[in-house]
Simulated scan of single mutants.
Amino acid sequence: MENGNVATQAEGKDPAGFLSDILFKPVTVKLNSGVVYKGELQSVDGYMNIALEKTEEYVNGAKRRTYGDAFVRGNNVMYISAES
């Protein structure tokens, strides 16, 4: 990139490309309510409805529950972040 800026891994990708790249990988999903889910992304649709496996739920930074599978309705999602 110009001017010495470091290019990010997701630079130039559309959201659908990013989501397909992180399928079956660990992600963090933050809801509008502030609740955070961490798990393996199994599927996501055009409405941002999300299916996770091996899911942990965090409330105020503290682990609250563990789920085998979790489904999150897309209109509740603030963001999805790939875990490194």
Rank of each mutant, 00 (worst) to 15 (best):
K13F: 13
Q9W: 12
M78L: 12
F24C: 01
V36E: 15
M78S: 12
V6N: 10
N32V: 13
K63H: 03
F24K: 14
G12W: 02
Y58G: 08
A10Y: 13
I80M: 05
R73A: 07
E56H: 04
R64W: 00
A51H: 07
T8A: 14
P26S: 15
D69A: 13
K13T: 12
R73C: 01
R73L: 06
G39H: 08
Y47A: 11
V72S: 00
Y37M: 03
Y67I: 08
Y67N: 11
E56W: 01
T66E: 13
N76Y: 06
D21H: 02
V29E: 01
K63T: 04
G68P: 02
N5S: 11
G17S: 15
G46V: 03
K63E: 09
K13Y: 11
V44K: 07
V6C: 05
Q42P: 00
G61K: 11
L52V: 10
K30E: 15
R65Q: 13
G12V: 09
T8H: 13
N32E: 14
T8N: 13
G61Y: 04
V35L: 07
K54D: 11
K38T: 11
D14E: 11
D21P: 01
K30S: 13
T28K: 15
F24I: 00
D14W: 08
E40F: 07
G12T: 11
A7N: 12
P15W: 06
I22P: 06
R73V: 09
N60L: 02
E11K: 07
L23A: 12
A51C: 00
S20Q: 15
N75Y: 06
G12N: 03
G46K: 10
G74D: 00
L52Y: 03
E40W: 01
V36G: 09
Q9K: 12
F18S: 02
P26Y: 07
V29W: 00
V35R: 14
I50L: 04
A62S: 12
N32I: 10
G4W: 06
T8C: 05
A62Y: 02
K38Q: 15
E56R: 13
A62G: 01
F71E: 04
F18V: 04
A51M: 04
A70T: 15
N5C: 08
Y37I: 10
M78F: 08
G61W: 02
V77Q: 03
G17R: 13
L41H: 08
V6D: 09
E53R: 08
T66N: 11
Y58Q: 06
I80R: 08
A10H: 08
K38Y: 01
K54S: 13
N49T: 06
N76L: 06
T28G: 12
Y67G: 04
V59Q: 11
Q42N: 14
G34C: 01
N76F: 08
T8F: 10
G39M: 03
D45I: 14
Y58P: 03
V59G: 03
A70I: 07
T55P: 03
Y58C: 08
A51Q: 10
